[in-house]
Write a protein that binds this DNA or RNA. Structure first.
Lengths: 121, 121
DNA sequence: TTGACATATTCCGATATGGGAATATAATCT
DNA sequence: AGATTATATTCCCATATCGGAATATGTCAA
C-alpha cells in the first residue's frame, strides 16, 4: 500500500501547507480562484488542483457566478482535527509536572509487563 | 516537486491514521514497540517505521530499557495543529447564521471586485 | 464568429510513500 | 559461543503526489 490519497480524509488534505493557506483565506469570506491565486502566489492550475482536493473531502464548496467560481469554506469538516488535537491540550496548558509523573507511572507499569527482569522500585 | 515527506512537519506526520493511533496509545503512558504492535495489530517493522517518522518530527522520543525501546509522546508538538484548527472553532460552536451572513457579505464584496458585470442589487 | 478572460483537466516526471519479506543489530539468557 | 527476544533497517513495488506546460471548457463581449 502506498501513502493514502490526499482526498482520503481531512487529515490528509490539510497536510499540504498551501491547502491550509487556502483554507485560511477562505475563512475570511468566499473567494474566486483568481483571488486565491493572487494571495498564494502560485499558478492557477495548482490552485484548481488544491481546491479539487479540498472539495473532495468536503472542506469547500463551489458556486458559479458568471465566469467566476466562488469557493466557500465548510469549516465544520475541520472539527475532527480540532477534536483530536484538543485531547492533548493539557500537555501544554497545564504545568507539566503532573503530566510527566502520570506518564512515568504508566510507563513503569508498561515496562514491568514486558520486561519483568528489570525489577521495579 | 512531489508530495512533501511525511517527516516534513507534524501535519504531514499525523496524516497517517496509524500514526495518530500510536500517538493516542502513547498518550496513556510510555510504551515499548511490542505493546504498540499489539494494540495496532500491525507488523513490527511497520510500527518501527511509523515511530521513526514520529521521532523525526519530534512527536516522540525514545529511551532504552534493556532490550526494549520505550517511546514517549512529546505532545507539545501537536500544539500547532491544535492552534490552527482552533481558529475555526467558532464555525461549529456558534450558531451558524451569523457566520454565514458574514461570509456572504465578504463574498459579494469579492465577486464585485472581479466580476463587476454581474452587478449586485 | 471571433476573441478575451476564468477556471478545470490532462499529461508529464521526479519523488516519497507504506507494507511485506528478509536481514541486521542489540541485549539477554543458557 | 549459540540461541532467543526486541527492535531497526534494507530492499522491493504499486501507487499517488505536486507542479509545470499545454490544452480544454465555459462565459461574456464586440
Amino acid at each position: 500500500m502506498a501513502r493514502a490519497a490526499t482526498t482520503t480524509d481531512v487529515f490528509n488534505a490539510i497536510a499540504e501547507p498551501r491547502r491550509r493557506t487556502i483554507i485560511d483565506v477562505l475563512a475570511r469570506g468566499d473567494q474566486a480562484v483568481g483571488q486565491i491565486m493572487a494571495r498564494l502566489r502560485i499558478a492557477q492550475p495548482a490552485v484548481s488542483k488544491h481546491l479539487r482536493v479540498l472539495r473532495k473531502v468536503g472542506l469547500v464548496s463551489v458556486r458559479k457566478e458568471g465566469r467566476l467560481r466562488l469557493y466557500r469554506l465548510n469549516a465544520r469538516e475541520l472539527k475532527p482535527v480540532h477534536d483530536w488535537a484538543k485531547r492533548f491540550e493539557e500537555f501544554w496548558t497545564h504545568q507539566l509536572d503532573r503530566i510527566k509523573d502520570r506518564a512515568e507511572k504508566k510507563a513503569s507499569d508498561a515496562s514491568r509487563q514486558n520486561a519483568p527482569k528489570k525489577g521495579p522500585t
